[in-house]
Amino acid sequence: MSALEAARRRQSWSKVTPEAPTREQLLPLVAAAGRVADHSSLQPWRLIELRGEDRIRLGEAISRVRGDDEPSTKPLRASLLIAVVASYRPSEKVPRWEQEAVASGVAHLLSLLLDEAGWGVIWRTGDYTRSPEVAALHGLGEDEALLGWLYVGGKPDRSPGSRRTVDPEPLLTALPR
């Protein structure tokens, strides 16, 4: 499948089956996703695998942030969550926003690669992604920010839903004169 085909058929899978790729299956995909454009090759990102009990601990942290009595069940929607972390590096040439864009690019490219490998993926965020409790759970440093999680699992025997094609005409413009 070409990159164009992969991008055209990309869908978010809000519901996935319990199967998930192993760490060994993930490693070559992460290596490929790390080829995203990266000014000065800073690698201002890292990924954290959450499986099993880790997802329960995340649900507890989310509930503390929200003031809920019961742990959130949201992290249990997939057997594998991959936390996407922007790890800002000191640089006079590359501002923080650009480093965050690199981390986002890695997450998106990884989601395409996972989809091509047959896995269902959705990138989930929430107001709690930047909370101190959730950052502490993930062991984030002072110069890191959580951008959300890729929820990964098997694709169910149904369509993820329809997604309309983007009309590129109004989105690709010329420089104003």
Rank of each mutant, 00 (worst) to 15 (best):
133 E>A: 06
155 K>H: 09
164 R>G: 08
141 G>E: 04
147 L>E: 06
149 W>T: 08
137 L>C: 00
160 P>A: 08
164 R>M: 09
135 A>N: 11
131 S>E: 04
152 V>Q: 06
157 D>L: 15
162 S>T: 12
148 G>W: 14
165 T>I: 14
158 R>S: 15
145 A>I: 00
139 G>Q: 12
146 L>S: 00
156 P>E: 11
168 P>M: 13
156 P>D: 11
149 W>Q: 12
159 S>W: 10
143 D>G: 00
148 G>D: 00
141 G>Y: 08
160 P>E: 12
144 E>I: 00
153 G>Y: 05
150 L>I: 08
145 A>F: 01
167 D>S: 14
158 R>E: 15
136 A>P: 03
161 G>N: 13
147 L>G: 08
162 S>I: 07
167 D>C: 10
154 G>P: 07
155 K>V: 09
132 P>V: 01
152 V>H: 10
132 P>I: 02
131 S>R: 03
162 S>A: 14
143 D>P: 04
132 P>T: 02
138 H>V: 02
167 D>R: 12
159 S>C: 10
134 V>G: 00
165 T>D: 14
164 R>N: 12
141 G>R: 08
135 A>R: 02
154 G>K: 10
135 A>H: 08
147 L>R: 06
137 L>E: 01
138 H>T: 02
142 E>Y: 04
137 L>K: 01
135 A>W: 00
161 G>Q: 14
131 S>M: 03
134 V>Y: 04
141 G>P: 05
156 P>T: 15
162 S>E: 13
162 S>C: 11
135 A>M: 06
147 L>F: 07
164 R>W: 12
145 A>V: 03
159 S>A: 12
146 L>G: 04
165 T>Q: 11
142 E>C: 09
141 G>K: 07
162 S>R: 05
168 P>N: 03
138 H>S: 05
154 G>Q: 11
149 W>A: 10
150 L>A: 03
139 G>E: 06
155 K>M: 14
143 D>W: 10
132 P>K: 01
168 P>H: 13
137 L>T: 09
151 Y>E: 03
136 A>C: 06
157 D>A: 15
131 S>G: 04
160 P>M: 09
160 P>G: 10
147 L>W: 08
165 T>G: 04
141 G>I: 01
155 K>R: 15
164 R>L: 11
132 P>C: 01
161 G>Y: 09
156 P>V: 04
140 L>N: 03
150 L>G: 00
166 V>L: 15
156 P>I: 10
159 S>F: 11
153 G>A: 04
139 G>F: 03
131 S>C: 07
168 P>Q: 13
164 R>P: 10
136 A>Y: 01
166 V>H: 05
143 D>S: 09
136 A>K: 08
157 D>E: 12
